[in-house]
Amino acid sequence: MKYLKDIQEQGMGTWYFEIDIDGVAYRQMVYHDDGTCITSNRKHDSYHFMLAEHPLNAQESYYKEINQAEFEKLWYEQLQLGLEDWRRTKTLFPVGTRVEGYIEAFFPQGTLINLMETPAIGITNTSALKIATPVEWMYPSYRVTAEVSGYDEVNHWVLLKHAEVIGSQLEEAGHM
């Protein structure tokens, strides 16, 4: 992985990325001038799940390569702000629990599932989900059932296995 920093124009904040050798972003942070921060692992009220949609070219002049330690320090600081919520999430969703949620987004790491317990987010293997799911159901808001298999401590996501899209959208179920 490579770690990049991009200081945007005035008022746009400082952007940080973790990318693979193909430039695909796996984690992203935006530190705004007012001290607020948006991270790719948490849903934001205005920006949803903010993660670069296209591969980044690390050779572009506006990117400065930084070391992993600098990125991880900033990421860790943001995780600490949500630590109480994360502890609560792990208590609510012990390993082996059957859960229901809905598709939020597709990330390189997998499919993000909103577990309908603020701010709990699960993640499941997208390839495995696609195998058993009609293509027209592989969209945000489609309901999913799964089993908790563990926890992603880097992103504070609940790991899910045996995920199934159950064929109705959230608003059809009366939850939106």
Rank of each mutant, 00 (worst) to 15 (best):
L74C: 05
L74V: 04
W75F: 05
W75P: 01
W75I: 00
W75A: 03
Y76H: 07
Y76A: 07
Y76S: 07
Y76E: 04
E77A: 08
E77G: 06
E77H: 08
E77I: 00
Q78V: 01
Q78R: 10
L79E: 06
L79P: 07
L79M: 11
L79N: 12
L79I: 01
L79D: 05
Q80E: 09
Q80V: 08
Q80R: 10
Q80K: 10
Q80P: 01
L81K: 15
L81G: 04
L81I: 01
L81T: 05
G82M: 08
G82N: 15
L83D: 13
L83C: 10
L83P: 01
L83S: 15
L83R: 14
L83Y: 11
L83Q: 13
E84S: 15
E84H: 15
E84A: 15
E84L: 15
E84Q: 15
E84M: 12
E84N: 15
D85H: 15
R87F: 09
R87K: 15
R87H: 13
R87A: 14
R88L: 12
R88V: 01
R88N: 13
R88Y: 09
T89S: 14
T89C: 13
T89L: 11
T89E: 11
T89V: 15
K90P: 04
K90V: 00
T91H: 13
T91A: 15
T91C: 12
L92A: 14
L92S: 13
L92D: 13
L92M: 12
L92T: 12
F93M: 06
F93R: 02
F93H: 00
F93I: 01
F93V: 01
P94L: 04
P94S: 09
P94T: 00
V95N: 12
G96D: 00
G96F: 02
G96Q: 01
G96E: 03
G96T: 00
T97Q: 14
T97H: 10
T97P: 03
T97S: 12
R98M: 06
R98I: 03
V99Q: 04
V99K: 06
V99A: 09
V99Y: 03
V99E: 04
V99F: 02
V99P: 02
E100W: 03
E100D: 08
E100V: 10
E100G: 15
G101P: 04
G101H: 09
G101W: 03
G101A: 11
G101C: 08
G101F: 04
G101K: 09
Y102S: 11
I103A: 07
I103G: 05
E104T: 00
E104S: 14
A105I: 00
A105P: 00
F106Y: 12
F106T: 02
F106V: 01
F106C: 03
F107Q: 07
F107D: 05
F107M: 07
F107H: 11
F107W: 06
P108Y: 07
Q109Y: 06
Q109I: 04
Q109N: 06
Q109P: 03
G110Y: 06
